[in-house]
Design a binder for these strands. Structure first.
Length: 288
DNA sequence: TCGCAGGGCCGGT
DNA sequence: ACCGGCCCTGCG
């Protein structure tokens, strides 16, 4: 087991808040499956205890996924522009943004339209069970490694590219099935996203939106949670609510107007400001 | 039990 | 620029 000093990092709301869908918390450990790694993490004071599977002690993976390189205090200063954000930071101290694997983010957010977070989590689990690679997780008993559980990783695009629609429908993805399969093919066969990390944010969004099933909102989610594009934030129903309720934007404002307004307002850190506001307004409306 | 909304998107008007 | 339909689930 590894120990890493990591104060001011709210694992609960960051891992389970709706950025990612593969984490569970049993009251002590967070267990997660992603496309390339399974992990367990536990908070202990200012430290976290953690392990990765099947590649053990993979700090490189952990550091990238949790974005341990960001200057968090600077980000908080940058986004603390008004009473609403300040209240949200107060309410959810240590909330962070993840940088997930792009392939996984692409495929999991294709499951998201008109679904609740609970529903998306269910889809990703069913897809992992059906198409994912199996990984064994161990725990230590008296210095002996004992099998703790087997988890299934999020499926690869190359696997999803070859499944039948009928079969994928068993994962309760509904009308999103064909979109998921065609995006998986675009990724794995056409190599459509090969150079996506080199593109500007605008180019990235255009490329994503050229896929069936990816509109403004899903494109933003993939860009923020999978590519760490910090200067934009996704606007779902809750995002539109904080835009109108807190900042007086029109209910009829178009998506691009919202995106541009918050991009300017948060000066390059709209993703962070928006994430605080999203959690804040959502929970204050009873989605605890 | 039923109705509704859920981290929307697309195609027809 | 608007609007209904989509496949299904959890929740009041």
């Amino acid at each position: 087991m590894n120990r890493t000093y990591l104060p001011n990092y709210n694992l609960l709301i960051t891992l389970l808040g709706g950025q990612s869908f593969g984490w569970d918390f049993d009251g002590e450990w967070f267990y997660g499956f992603t496309i390339d790694c399974a992990a367990k993490i536990k908070r202990e004071g200012d430290d976290i205890l953690w392990q990765t599977y099947p590649i053990k002690d993979n700090y490189e993976w952990l550091s990238k996924y949790l974005r341990l390189d960001v200057d968090y205090n600077n980000i908080l200063n940058q986004v603390s522009k008004d009473q609403h954000v300040k209240a949200a930071i107060e309410a959810y101290p240590g909330l962070r943004l993840l940088k997930q694997n792009f392939e996984e983010t692409l495929l999991s957010f294709l499951c998201s339209p008109t679904k609740s977070i609970v529903g998306i989590r269910q889809c990703t689990r069913l897809m992992a069970e059906k198409y994912g690679e199996k990984v064994k997780i161990f725990k230590q008993n008296n210095n002996v490694n004992v099998l703790e559980k087997e988890v299934l990783l999020f499926p690869k695009a190359s696997r999803l590219a070859e499944v039948e629609v009928e079969d994928l429908l068993k994962c309760k993805v509904g009308f999103r099935a064909t979109n998921i399969i065609s995006a998986a093919r675009a990724f794995a066969v056409e190599k459509k996203f090969e150079n996506i990390e080199l593109l500007t944010t605008e180019e990235t969004l255009e490329l994503l939106k050229s896929c069936r099933g990816i509109g403004d909102k899903v494109a933003d989610c993939i860009a923020v949670y999978g590519l760490a594009k910090d200067e934009i934030t996704p606007f779902d129903v809750w995002g539109k609510r904080f835009a109108t309720n807190y900042y007086g934007l029109s209910e009829k404002a178009k998506y691009d107007e919202l995106r541009q307004w918050f991009k300017n307002y948060f000066n390059g850190y709209a993703a962070w400001g928006g994430q605080f506001l999203f959690e804040y307004i959502r929970k204050s409306n009873g989605r605890g």
